[in-house]
Design a protein around this nucleic acid. Structure first.
Length: 595
RNA sequence: GGGGGUGUAGCUCAGCUGGUUAGAGCGCUGGCCUGUCACGCCAGAGGUCGCGGGUUCGAGUCCCGUCACUCCCGCCA
């Protein structure tokens, strides 16, 4: 007989009755009747009920073992009588009659209970993560994560993508987030940076002629955490392909995402390829965001012209000064009580908007505080444009274009939630395409890249030379699922002369570009294929599939919000000798205050 | 860096407008119990009310500061 087990705790069925077996696992639960004792023995695979009574000489030692002690039991499998079968357990037809018993690993008083569904404080959970991970829900989430990643690998490999590793110790990134730095022992005063993404490497892989690359890539960005963002590190399905247009990238990724979400998505409906492609400008207008939740049926309309020149001076005079009016239809809201509209109005004010004017439609007419400012013709235009019928309402927001768009987007979500229009039985995917190449900095007004500086501008060099930079679109796209941005990607700029020009517009001199992106630029000068790719976030995919709101629920060993590992004690001070080796000194922060 | 929430037994929580000895469930210890599956019943141990200061005759409760966990803003091409 095997030293530890002949079966696993989820294996045994009534067919095994009469066999002498051995199981090892954790004591999940005990039911002690004094002269009769039941133990639910748990391992990764399941739970098996084990039983012993007082006639056994080892009864006392079994009874003394605490919950979460690791034990080994040996004994005969017995079919349970009909009235004692437990239908909620896969092994519920049988039980193990304990004849031999050993403690393999003793357990002390537990800081959290493994067999309970209670929520525990994060500090306890993270400090005792090994116990937390024994608990059913998170144990399953971590397994799901693994299966999803395996499945992604299979689907990518089947399409001819090759997985490569790229360096972890590399150079600091040109744009974007704060870097993690690693001091160099051999080069005093110099530092490696951890990769924010393997962006330049994957382009170099294409230039090296490997044609199709992917990687479950660790990415490091030293930015503050959020519920859906771990501090410091995350994983992407990083991929890149050569000789492709934007549609080729979409065609490659859509079946992977559709496949993964269909297989692991709890039978929710998944958008079939091809996913809708929504231009950035249209997304901002219709959904008020570049990450639209398409489960929400509400579509925003621009109704500036309907309100221009009306007696409703708040809107009319703002329009004359360049403001726009956006209409947010609220299907079926006509039957809601006055308080529904008041609550939304209060919310709008709390969000910093002036308010949220509305019109309710009944018996073919518009009703409500501001309806009287629109004549029949305008009311009819509104009904047609916003697709309104009796029993519907429509809300208005009036502001400068970007503000109005973004606020209408928030209102769209809020109204969709309040009216329960967003059902949780679907994964609605879309691509947001045609991102602007440049944007004006909020504060300085200076032009900067709005996304990846290595993206190819639509129209190429000619567009850069002739168009207003703010009008230029890039072959830059995001993939969005249920309002969550899963990734961004682009067709890359593989032409040095276009690269110099693109950077020049963003205020970089030729020298600066060469200093900062020399490696990349140099590579482009020796025969670079057109290429592009994307990088869907693994963590967010798993969050969606596991239906979890917090990234710690799908991360095996997460850090706290303050970026500390409470279990391993990281970060920690370094020894003097360690610092000396790295040519480092720690400067103590001067005491603040008066003493 | 800023704003909000939480912090009471090993764990999850209750504790009213400040008032006598700070409670419950789970876990733990002891006793009873041979068919439970969240077993049941009885008893017990277990508390620096996060920490420091203040107000008060009196503080878990009010005030100030601070720490931890968390959510959000900034940040995250």
């Amino acid at each position: 007989m095997h030293e530890y087990r002949t079966h696993r705790c989820g294996d045994l069925r009534k067919e095994n009755a009469g066999e002498k077996v051995r199981l090892s696992g954790w004591i999940h639960r005990k039911r002690d009747h004094g002269n009769l004792l039941f133990i639910d023995l748990r391992d990764h695979y399941g739970i098996t009920q084990c039983v012993i009574d007082v006639s056994s000489p080892i009864f006392q030692s079994v009874e003394n073992a605490r919950l979460e002690t690791v034990i080994r039991v040996t004994g005969e499998i017995v079919k349970r009588s009909d009235d004692t079968i437990n239908a909620s357990l896969s092994t519920g037809d049988i039980e193990l009659n304990i004849s031999e018993f050993d403690v393999l690993g003793e357990a002390g008083n537990l800081p959290l209970q493994v067999n309970s569904d209670d929520d525990y404080g994060e500090e306890t959970r993270l400090r005792y993560r090994f116990l937390d991970l024994r608990r059913d829900r998170i144990h399953k989430n971590i397994v799901l994560r693994s299966r999803v990643i395996s499945d992604i690998r299979r689907r990518m490999t089947d399409q001819g993508f090759i997985e490569f590793q790229t360096p972890i110790l590399t150079s600091t990134s040109p744009e974007g987030a704060r870097d993690f730095l690693v001091p160099s022992r051999l080069h005093p005063g110099e530092f490696y940076a951890l990769p924010q993404a393997p962006q330049q490497f994957k382009q170099l892989i294409m230039i090296a002629g490997f044609d199709r690359y992917f990687q479950i890539a660790p990415c490091f960005r030293d930015e503050d955490a959020r519920a859906d963002r771990s501090p410091g590190e995350f994983y992407q399905l990083d991929m890149e392909m050569s000789f492709v247009s934007q549609d080729d990238v979409f065609d490659a990724l859509e079946p992977v995402l559709h496949g993964i979400f269909s297989e692991f998505g709890n039978k929710k409906v998944v958008t079939s390829p091809p996913f809708p492609r929504i231009p950035y400008d249209e997304a901002l207008l219709k959904y008020g965001t570049d990450k639209p939740d398409l489960r929400n049926p509400i579509e925003i309309e621009d109704v500036t012209e309907i309100w221009r020149g009306t007696e409703f001076k708040i809107f009319a005079s703002a329009i004359d000064k360049g403001s726009v009016v956006r209409a947010i239809p609220a299907p079926g809201a006509g039957s809601k009580p006055r308080s529904f509209f008041d609550k939304l109005n209060d919310w709008a004010r709390a969000e910093g908007a002036g308010g949220l004017g509305y019109i309710v439609f009944e018996k073919g007419e518009g009703k409500g505080p501001i309806a009287r400012f629109l004549d029949d013709e305008r009311i009819n235009k509104l009904k047609v444009q916003a697709d309104l019928k009796d029993g519907d309402a429509v809300f208005f927001t009036c502001a400068a274009e970007l503000t109005a768009s973004q606020f209408a987007g928030k209102a769209r979500t809020r109204i969709g939630v309040d009216l329960e229009l967003i059902t949780d039985d679907r994964f609605d995917f879309c691509w947001v395409v045609d991102y602007p190449m440049y944007e004006a900095d909020h504060h300085t007004g200076e032009l900067q890249f709005s996304h990846n500086p290595f993206s190819m501008p639509q129209g190429g060099l000619e567009a850069l030379e002739k168009l207003d930079p703010l009008e230029i679109k890039a072959y830059q796209y995001d993939i969005v699922c249920n309002g969550i941005e899963l990734s961004s990607g682009a067709i890359r700029n593989h032409r040095p002369e276009i690269m110099y020009k693109a950077f020049q517009i963003a205020g970089y001199t030729t020298e600066e570009v060469e200093t900062r992106f020399g490696g990349m630029l140099n590579a482009l000068k020796y025969g670079a294929p057109p290429h592009g790719g994307s990088a869907p976030g693994i963590d967010r995919i798993v969050m969606l599939l596991a239906n979890e709101e917090n990234i710690r629920e799908i991360t095996m060993f997460p850090m706290t919000q303050q970026a500390q590992d409470l279990m391993m004690g990281a970060p920690a001070p370094a020894d003097r000798s360690h610092l000396d080796e790295l040519h480092l000194d720690v400067i103590k922060k001067p005491e603040t205050g008066d003493n």
